[in-house]
């Protein structure tokens, strides 16, 4: 059942009366998110004009558009691109009653964006070939994994993880680690799905991806694959939980409507739908995890302020420096 949280905030920014439609830039692919939009549209009668694209490309577009952007809401696949928009000062501060049930760890400290689903960093591996599971990301520079590892450095999730690494251990450490990987014959892929496929094919044995890719690849191939998810030891930086989230554009005239949509997406029913349909984690306390996976609190994610994931520049510069970008 759909439960729309009606908010009566006192500090709404502009809100047009009689909203009939709203514009969303969605970095989440149509296939996954469209059903949610359809449900909301049916319940509220408000037409959603959704522009689908890649999160980072859309964020670049919003940055170029600046205050002239027609977008009301930006739904992103990762915190990094949300952080970039926030840093450019293009998001509104969300009132405290929007997505009130999402734990603070998954919400921007300045409340300019909120997390909606959880995406855990894992290592996907081929059980038949990997006998010794790595306990830490730092293990990946060891010779037993020589030429066996795949990463996707252009991927936002990888960069988010790297940003966490830099934040926690410093860029010198991160640089050494990256160079260690390169020396260990790490293979570069453009997409996470390509990594999982490669593991299945036997090109590599282990790859740094997000947890839901084993489902995604298996569904698209139409068959089971010989790849499993593995987590590093608790508190290891490789266990980063990233979020997909949303923010409302400052220049939007439909702030309240956008907030309503965010509340819908963070409602228990919608959150459960995320777990079932897209195999992502719900961010609500006590929610069921995806099949065969530990709950969020059991993963032992490093304690890290997600806000710091928007320190993208340093991450990118480092990747450019070592030649991975």
């Amino acid at each position: 059942m759909l439960g729309l949280v009606t908010s009566c905030s006192t500090s709404t920014n502009e809100q047009a009366t009689n909203v009939t439609e709203m514009t969303i830039y969605s970095g989440r692919s149509e296939e996954f998110i469209a059903p949610f939009f359809a449900d909301w549209q049916a319940a509220t009668g408000i037409k959603l004009n959704v522009r689908y694209g890649d999160s980072a490309e859309l964020s670049a577009q919003i940055l170029e558009e600046g205050s002239n952007s027609p977008a009301d809401l930006f739904l992103s696949q990762d915190a990094g691109s949300l952080g970039a928009i926030s840093q450019a000062g293009l998001f509104t501060t969300l009132p405290s009653d929007v997505a009130a049930d999402i734990p603070a760890a998954y919400v921007a400290a300045n409340r300019e964006w909120v997390g909606i689903t959880g995406r855990a960093r894992v290592f996907a591996y081929a059980p038949v070939r990997v006998k010794t599971l790595p306990a830490s990301v730092t293990d990946l520079t060891k010779s037993i994994y020589k030429n066996q590892i795949g990463i996707a450095p252009t991927n936002a999730s990888f960069q988010a993880f790297l940003a966490a690494l830099i934040e926690n251990k410093g860029s010198g450490f991160a640089k050494t680690w990256l160079e260690g990987l390169q020396a260990n014959g790490v293979k570069i892929y453009l997409k996470n799905s390509a990594i999982v496929e490669a593991i299945d094919k036997g090109e590599i044995s282990l790859g740094l991806v997000n947890h839901y890719y084993i489902w995604e690849v298996s569904e698209s191939l139409g068959r089971a694959i010989n790849v499993k998810n593995g987590f590093f030891a608790p508190s290891d930086l490789g266990n980063l939980i990233n979020v997909s989230g949303a923010g409302v554009l400052q220049t939007s005239a439909k702030q309240k409507t956008a907030q309503d949509l965010i509340n819908y997406l963070t409602s228990p029913a919608a959150q459960q739908k995320f777990v079932t349909d897209t195999h992502e984690y719900s961010l609500l306390d006590g929610a069921l995890p995806p099949t065969d996976l530990p709950t969020l609190d059991k993963i032992g994610a490093p304690s890290l302020d997600l806000k710091n994931l928007s320190n993208i520049k340093a991450t990118q510069d480092l990747l450019i420096q070592v030649g991975l970008l």
Binding site: D54, A56, E57, S59, A60, L63, E64, S81, A84, P153, T154, N155, A156, Q159, I312, K313, Q316, L319, I320, L325
Partner: peptide, 10 residues
Amino acid sequence: QNMYRASYDR
């Protein structure tokens, strides 16, 4: 394209 896509460094 990668720089636009993966990096916000236009």
